[in-house]
Design a binder for these strands. Structure first.
Lengths: 221, 221
DNA sequence: GTAAAAGCGAACAGACTGTTCGGAAATTCT
DNA sequence: AGAATTTCCGAACAGTCTGTTCGCTTTTAC
């Protein structure tokens, strides 16, 4: 019952004995799992804002002190779920997505980056809905948006790296455009549950957004 | 001290005596103005979520009971500011925007719809930041998004009214795309304060988004 | 000037937060 | 299996915020 999540795994890659990625005390795993499950269920029922720590406690059937032994507050608990998802996404992308610049130049072998993301979201729909949907917590959404913005910015910077003229639209504006369009379509898809597959959403996203990106970045060299 | 805002102005277009839009009790005006000003200032300082009714009361220097005589809760107060802004926007649009379909066919006399919106936001920057920016309240943002979605949907439905073939991308997807891109650029512009005028932002928005809309709606007839 | 409306301020019950404690229970290590 | 450690429990706590009530005072409209 030492500290909070922030302290966990400080040791990095070194572990005490033979077993890699040493499992924590079973009670700890159990408690955290129960808390996360309770939170997710409650968010889907009432929306993040209306869920209190008290609700989570009651649902998970755990003591108050126990919660604060593991998480600083409600946000902290939600973020822990987000980090888990991030790991899963990383693996998914490595498996299905085309190597690079997929969102600017959709001609490679795998599906595009956007498609891969929609795909992953479709598989983990429940969790995505909680983290990214309208019922979810704004804090995590902002966090995710930030990460995603960095990703897109890198892609587009690479795309205009060796041009001479400045693009017709400032790069940052185009970045914001892409991110907004993507997240907007994603959350709409998650929340209103239309009959399109993740792959279809990815294709539609590309049809809509890529022409604008081309226009924003300027003539290809 | 009867009821809340919801009851106000029920009479619609009929007023008791000669004066149109009869002014309310001066104390009422004063109180509401003080509350709104306090809320706006506090949101810009701390962000909507962290502002409590108590804060607003202290800042406005009003009694607790007085607040609840006018507004149901914090959200209600914020929404009242939103409605005020909406009125102002309506007038602004009537004055500067091109008549219709401005976002699909940017060739008319005035500036485009998007440009007009950016323009208005630039003039009322402070209030817009509070209502639409990241520090603002999610509830109002959702509300605004809803209204704006209806507007865009109508425009696009009109644009595809007499086609025979279905568009390559379902209309609703295109609608969500346009709304997301617009609101994304708007909030970014409001929050991070880049050196572009509202008119410039409107033009950039059109450069980025219109190609996608054309692709999404399909070949023009 | 009078009557009606609005503001005041104090007090209230209810909910939630985040922290503390010692004792009870589970788990790990040997 | 037994000892040492870690975690959980549960109750209680001070503190904050909400939304409502009440009788009294002030301001306003007519």
């Amino acid at each position: 019952m030492r500290g909070h999540r922030s302290e966990a795994n400080v040791s990095g890659k070194l572990f005490g004995n033979g077993e890699r990625r040493r499992a924590e005390d079973r009670r700890v795993r159990r408690t955290r799992r129960l808390l996360r499950e309770a939170l997710v269920a409650l968010i889907l029922e009432k929306g993040y804002d209306k869920v209190t720590v008290q609700d989570v406690l009651d649902r998970a059937d755990l003591g108050r002190a126990t919660f604060y032994a593991h998480f600083r507050d409600k946000d902290d608990l939600l973020v822990s779920g987000f980090e888990e998802l991030q790991e899963s996404l990383r693996e998914h992308l490595a498996r299905v997505a085309r190597p690079s610049r997929a969102d600017v130049d959709p001609s490679g072998g795998g599906i595009g980056l956007a498609g891969a993301l929609f795909d992953h979201a479709g598989q983990q729909r429940r969790l995505y809905r909680v983290l990214m949907g309208r019922r979810g917590g704004a804090a995590v959404f902002k966090h995710a948006r930030g990460q995603f913005t960095v990703l897109v910015r890198e892609h587009l910077e690479e795309a205009v790296a060796n041009r001479q003229a400045a693009p017709p639209v400032p790069l940052e504006v185009t970045v914001q455009y892409v991110v907004s369009a993507f997240l907007g379509l994603l959350t709409w898809w998650l929340d209103s549950d239309p009959p399109y597959t993740g792959e279809q959403m990815g294709r539609m996203f590309e049809q809509l957004v890529i022409p604008g990106v081309r226009a924003g970045l300027g003539p290809r060299l």
